[in-house]
Design a protein around this nucleic acid. Sequence first.
RNA 1: GGAGGAGUACCCAAGUCAGGCUGAAGGGGCGGGUUUGCUAAACCUGUAGUAGGGUUACAGCCCUAGCGAGGGUUCGAAUCCCUCCUCCUCCGCCA
Length: 428
Amino acid sequence: MLEMRFIRDNPQKVKDAIIAKGEAGVDIDELLAADESWREALTELESLRADRNETSKEIGRRKKAGDDAEAMILRMREVNESIDVKEEQVKTLQLYIDEALALIPNLPHPDVPLGDGEDDNVEIRRWGEPRSFPFEPLAHWDIGVQLGILDFERASRIAGARFSILRGGAALLERALISYMMDLHVEEHGYEEIIPPYLVSRQSMFGTGQLPKFEDDAFLVNRQDYFLVPTAEVPVTNMYRGEMLGAEDLPMKFVAYSACFRAEAGAAGRDTRGLIRQHQFNKVELVQYTLPETSYETLDDMCAQAEKVLQRLNLPYRVLIMCTGDMGFAQEKKYDLELWMPSYSDYVEVSSVSNFGDFQARRADLRFRRSRDARPEFVHTLNASGLAIGRTMAAILENYQNEDGTVTIPEPLRPYMRGQRVIGFKGS
RNA sequence: GGAGGAGUACCCAAGUCAGGCUGAAGGGGCGGGUUUGCUAAACCUGUAGUAGGGUUACAGCCCUAGCGAGGGUUCGAAUCCCUCCUCCUCCGCCA
């Protein structure tokens, strides 16, 4: 959320950002006019209240002294009527302003390339060579089904499309990936391990920016005002909502595992096969709260930390910087990590690394003080997938497949899989 | 799910069932100071923070809001009424 004060002072910047991000909707000039009227009405309201406060004290004094206060009380009844009218006016304007503010996207960082959509994203580096297969490689959904470790048919029977059942080796590999990533980020990067609630309140979804604009992307629990978390970013970023932190507490670094739930509205027909686009998937997520002046440095650190997982697993990937039109509502700057997926003959997103600046912090009221007497400031928040588990698994199945249909397990995961080196056929 | 109890500033805690100089007693803590060879102790003293608006020399000053949240009653609400949230205790149920 941007500050009204900032919009007042920089209307053009905000208009530019709305256009650059391709966000619809808020008429900034109208908003500024509403703000103007709001301040005017507020000033009038407050002076009426000041009158009432002062007069009421005087009435109290008179009554105590046994003097007559009837005339004053009558006058105050009239003042109260004016107050009611003004209050209504202020409230209406306030409501309009709040709703408009909630729909204004964050400003992109100046480094971010301008662009309309994914074609304008800029690749900044590549790591690893896509493997060339001496045989015709299979897609992960074929590999998994052949091995009996991915079961899409029965998943759709029990839940519908875009769900999967992991069985045997795949279930074990999923757990191994979660544990491996959590351990890596805890032991080598100093994060605190978190398992958050998977259901969150409306307010939490607002805090990270999913609401009000993107309600359709989330699952809302029937008859309860809870949302299934689309990412652990939501609970973890909201963890300190409303608290006042000390500068010495920063940065705060969390690595969270959660299941993630997405409605995938508008994705009909896309990635319908396999593990790439599911309603439910697992993800290990990195979240940091930082000092404002260090957040961009941290962004690059977090990107490198997410990359390290791919490097250790020896999965070829590339890093893109997202253009203004593809980066999302709340982000100032965002990188995507995409890994090589032979079945797509292309790179597929497996992580996004974002700096939100103080945009989420302002929505979620995440503040800190540099010293006891210093003014409160908003922290900066960042997150990075570290990584999406399902897509990583898909990439492992495809990139590590063998000609006989088995899959070699990447070496770092073997200790997490009872020393197993290969996922083979049942009974073999 | 049932029955009770509680949410007041950084923390503890008065005030609430007599509504009005209570924007909030008293402790603790923290800041500053005095005494002291150092520590300890004692004494003195300062301590809502915040959000919004106005004004201004980005010092400052004024106003408004604010006693879990939101409404209501009243000239006036921490105090009376309603709704909600959270926490605690006991019972039930369950992993």
